[in-house]
Structures are given as C-alpha cells and as structure tokens.
Design a protein around this nucleic acid. Structure first.
Length: 325
DNA sequence: ATGGTTTTTACTGCGTC
DNA sequence: GACGCGGTAAAAACCAT
C-alpha cells in the first residue's frame, strides 16, 4: 500500500516539474523561434536572431538611483524591513531578543543574563509608555485575536489596525471602550475587504454586545467618512457552501441566482446573509443535493422563514430572466 | 420619537418515509 | 409519528427621517 502512495507522489512531482519547464520554454520568438532576450535598459524584450521586439515598456523593477560605489549605495538605498500597521509602533522600534545569546550565539553569563532581563523590562516600559500607546497595543491585540477566531486574513487585520489608528488620532475614543472600537474597526475592514462577517459572528468572538458594536460601528464610519458598500451576498456563498459540503456546481448556481436577482433589483434592502442562504438552498435544490432549510438556517444564522421568502423570489427572478432571454 | 420595512417567532396543515 | 416544507399573523428589530 505504501508502495503505491509513494509512486503516485513521485509521479506528481515529475508532472509538476514538467509543467514548469513547459512554461519556461515558451519564451521564444514567434517569428523565427529564436531565443528571446530582455533588454532592460530600453524596457524591451527582443529576439536574439531576427531582432523582433516582442514586448515594450516593461516595468523596471530596479531602483531609480545610481550608485558608483558601495558607500553611495548604502546612503541612497531606502530599503529596510517592511513596516506593518499591526504593531503599535509600526514594527520600527528596537527589540531585545529573548534568547540569552550574544551576537555569536554563545550563551551569556548569569550576570549578563540578569542585565539583559532588566534591559528588556525597561525597553518594554519605555516602548509602551504613554497611555495612547498602551491603548493601541491592547486594541491591536484584540483585533488580532478576533481576526484569528474569525479566520480573517492578514490584510484585513492591517486595515482594521489602520482604521483603529485613525479613530485614535481623531479622538473618537473617549466615552467608548477599546474593545468596542477595535471590534468595529475589524468589522468594517472585513466588509471593506470583501470578506464580511455578519454582526452575529463578530459579536460571538468579541467581548462587547451587538448593540454596542452597531453603535460604535456607525459612529466610526460617520466620523471617519469611511464609505462601505452593503455587503455583497455572493461573498458569503463560498463559506456557507463549504460548511454544508456542497459541490462547486451548486456554489456556482448560487452565484448565478444572486446575479439574476441583482439584475432584477431584488437585492436592495434585504439582508445579504439571508439572500446568500436562500441562494445556497435554491442552488442545492437545482442540483439535487440534499440540504434542509434548517441546516442552511443553522450555518447562516437566518430563520427558515426568511430563507423560504427569499428563495422563492430568487427562483422567480431566475425564471423570468431565462424566459426573456 | 415615529413609521415603514424586514426579520423572527410561533403555530398550523400537508405530504412522505 | 417524525420530518421537511409551505404558509400566516403578530412581535421584534432595524433604519431613515
């Protein structure tokens, strides 16, 4: 048994390599099939044999400055570690390593160890000295925790951090809890990124209740002039579909149904989650996959009644459009 | 605060396995 | 008889004004 699994694995590897080679080999001249050479100074890709210019205006990814010796290169280069908004000081402050090793990797003496420990302590104290910094630190920790619990990607956390920073710098915090604003920022950024989580889902992992979240969310949006479009029902579809273990086919049909409904103008005013749930249910019916309304209502946190009402409308809209087409 | 819209809750009847 | 589904009325929640 292990024999076969090993062989298939190596076969897969060989296939992947062959594919890569194929992609490399495509770089030949379409006229005379000579070798192509990229001339980065003129931003062109030319054929070595016939001189045909295949690509023009390629992007030069190199630096825009020139350096004539090593020291000039050091002074002109502006590259360093990337900054990140997810750390309260943009990741730019100095940190003292936790390993008690010197620069050569040797262990420190106990005296040195104690010294480093004291330095670490003070470094941390200075780094997070004033209240705003401490505030930020806690908030970003919360954002990170909630984002993990909701399975939200890095970029969502980043924008959530940015939103929180803006709220902080505009003095929107007084009178509102750190958690409230952090949660609202995360909720907003998740929607902005097109990977929305419903209010219910967010309040599940947050320490604040739904009312406070909606209140602070609205407030933050207004004050920061954030323009956030209503969540697209389609963005819920993949998650629900996989929770219900439905085929890609029904997922696709669910999207189609939603598009049809959008064209028919049925989407406005209705809850996006409800629409997504209904589309999933309807699509499952069309593909003869067995899902009950109660299952869908469970994973989507939507009442069965809403699913019924929506999915009738969805199917009607689909019928009408197919007939008129 | 209020009124209009949407969603939820609760209940009922029908058909099927 | 349990289950899935469809419908209804009233209550609750939500939203803009």
């Amino acid at each position: 048994m292990s024999d076969t699994t090993i062989r298939t694995y190596t076969e897969e590897m060989a296939e992947a390599e062959a594919e890569q080679e194929e992609q490399e080999a495509v770089r030949t001249c379409p006229e005379c099939s000579g070798r192509l050479v990229s001339d980065s100074e003129h931003g062109e890709t030319v054929c070595q044999d016939c001189g045909l210019v295949v690509e023009e205006d390629a992007v030069d990814r190199g630096p825009e400055w020139r350096a004539f010796d090593a020291s000039e290169k050091d002074s002109k280069s502006r590259v360093g570690a990337p900054t990140t908004n997810m750390m309260h000081d943009n990741g730019l402050s100095t940190n003292i390593g936790w390993q008690d090793k010197d620069a050569y990797g040797r262990a420190l003496s106990s005296r040195q160890r104690a010294k480093m420990q004291r330095l670490r302590t003070w470094n941390e104290r200075f780094r997070t000295r004033d209240s705003k910094e401490r505030n930020l630190k806690q908030a970003l920790g919360e954002i990170d925790r909630m984002a993990s619990a909701l399975g939200l990607p890095e970029n969502v956390r980043e924008t959530a951090s940015v939103i929180y920073r803006r709220a902080l710098s505009e003095d929107l915090l007084p009178g509102r809890s750190i958690e409230g604003v952090a949660t609202a920022a995360l909720y907003a950024s998740a929607r902005q990124a097109g990977t929305p989580r419903s209010l219910d889902e967010v309040t599940m992992v947050s320490r604040i209740d739904k009312m406070e979240l909606t209140r602070t969310y609205r407030y933050i949006i207004r004050q920061l002039n954030l323009e956030i479009k209503p969540a697209d029902p389609e963005s819920y579809v993949p998650r629900f579909a996989s929770d219900l273990e439905l085929s890609d086919e029904s997922e696709r049909r669910a999207r189609d149904l939603l598009r049809g409904a959008r064209d028919a103008g049925l989407l406005s005013g209705k809850s996006p989650v409800g629409l997504a749930a209904a589309a999933i249910y309807a699509a499952a019916l069309l593909t003869n996959e067995k899902v009950t309304q109660s299952q869908v209502s469970d994973v989507a946190n939507i009442s069965e009644v809403t699913i019924r009402n929506r999915y009738k409308e969805l199917l009607e809209a689909a019928d009408v459009t197919t007939v008129t087409n």
